[in-house]
Simulated assay, not measured.
Amino acid sequence: MNPYVLAVLLSSLGLGTTLTFASSHWLLAWMGLEINTLAIAPLMAQQHHPRAVEATTKYFLTQATAAAMILFAATTNAWITGEWDINNLSHPIASTMTITALALKIGLAPMHFWLPEVLQGLDLLTGLILSTWQKLAPFALIIQVAPAIDPMVLTSLGILSTLTGGWGGLNQTQIRKILAYSSIAHMGWMMIILQHAPQLTLLALGMYILMTSATFLSLKMVSATKISTLTTMWSKTPILAPTTALALLSLGGLPPLTGFMPKWLILQEMTKQELPLTATTMALAALLSLYFYLRLCYAMALTISPHTTNSTTPWRTQTTQTTLPLALSTTVALGLLPITPAILMLTT
């Protein structure tokens, strides 16, 4: 892609997200979401492959549907209350439509069906943008409208997303689909605590972005898109293989890695709110996700590739890719747990 075109598209992504962050009017927030969608569509279709075009079409139709629902909900709320302010979402019909549309935007269950299929058709860097940056603007709106949403709706979305993300990834062989179901499960963790401690939702979102960035960049370094290609990772990059395995375990929430921090604090907050059954359900659902992370780690660390592999030649070669973002994101994704007390002081 032409570097000038790429710069314009990435700038538009930043502009759309910033516009949604800064707006208190539904129309401006909707414009920011639309700029985001239109900016990432050319990045998704740049491969000129039927699968990429199909994924782009699915993503565009889904996001257009969600945007239309947001605009209709905002119009309904303005018709009833006379105001377009985001924080004044008082009518139950408008609030329910809004949270449904925003759940469709970020891929929360049961509106998650598009996400694995879309992510499967993208290259790893575009998939990274879709899994991280594209979540920011809708989540800013979700946090603002959460006080007007029925707590039972938020709890149902959270539990259903965590269970769906766990079950859906169990039988997958494509890494991008596994990471899509991982995204659905992590979004569920953020939704479940939103009504009680929004600051923990932001913490979980930040940690998820860091860990997912480390995982995607590691897979991009070795061009791995299937579990079978992970078996050659040790022979290609003997240092990156255990680092990637640790990043996946961090995504699963195992101590003493960074990913344990948000799950620990969320479960602690739910027990403080006297929700032991919900906390137990979320902890058990996390075990489902941990299983398919362990499958990936098993393929990287405990198997040897057959000689008939179809992947690139598994010899140790010098890479021309930039390794600084990978090094920084991996370090952060593995080693932030000791600063949990400091983060906890900031969020209280």
Rank of each mutant, 00 (worst) to 15 (best):
T162H: 13
M191F: 13
Q321W: 07
A64M: 00
W79T: 00
G188A: 10
Y298Q: 12
T258W: 05
L284K: 00
S11E: 07
L61N: 05
H91R: 00
A286L: 11
T155F: 06
E269H: 07
G168H: 06
T57I: 03
G14T: 11
T258R: 07
T18Q: 11
Q172H: 13
A94T: 06
I93E: 09
L122G: 07
I35M: 11
T173A: 11
T312P: 12
N2W: 02
W114E: 05
L248W: 10
A29E: 04
T231N: 13
A180G: 07
L210N: 06
S289R: 05
H307V: 08
P116I: 03
D123T: 14
A66V: 00
L15V: 15
E274Y: 08
I86R: 06
A64P: 01
K263V: 03
P110C: 10
I93S: 12
G121C: 03
Q172D: 14
I129L: 15
L265T: 06
G82W: 10
L267P: 02
L275K: 05
L19W: 05
P338A: 02
Y291I: 11
R295H: 10
Y4K: 14
N310Y: 13
A185L: 10
L38S: 13
T96S: 15
A66F: 01
P276V: 01
I339R: 02
T57G: 04
K135L: 03
I80M: 02
T281I: 10
F60S: 05
I184M: 04
A299Q: 14
I304D: 11
P262G: 14
T56Q: 08
P151E: 00
Q321M: 10
L265R: 14
E83W: 00
L275V: 00
M152A: 15
L324C: 06
A41T: 08
L200I: 14
L115G: 09
A245H: 09
A52D: 02
F21H: 08
H196P: 04
Q174V: 01
T229V: 00
M190T: 02
P238M: 03
V222Q: 09
L71G: 11
A39D: 06
N88A: 09
Q134A: 14
Y59S: 00
I99L: 10
S161W: 08
I193M: 09
G14E: 10
T81A: 10
A180S: 07
A301Q: 13
A55Q: 01
T317L: 12
Q268C: 12
T201Q: 05
S12I: 00
G14F: 15
K220G: 14
I35V: 15
T96L: 15
S213V: 04
T347E: 02
V8G: 09
A29W: 03
L203C: 03
A327N: 04
L19M: 13
Y59Q: 01
M233V: 05
L125I: 05
V332H: 05
L210E: 01
L102Y: 08
I106K: 02
G168A: 09
V153I: 15
I239W: 08
S223N: 13
K226E: 13
I129F: 12
Q134L: 15
T65E: 00
I209G: 01
T75M: 03
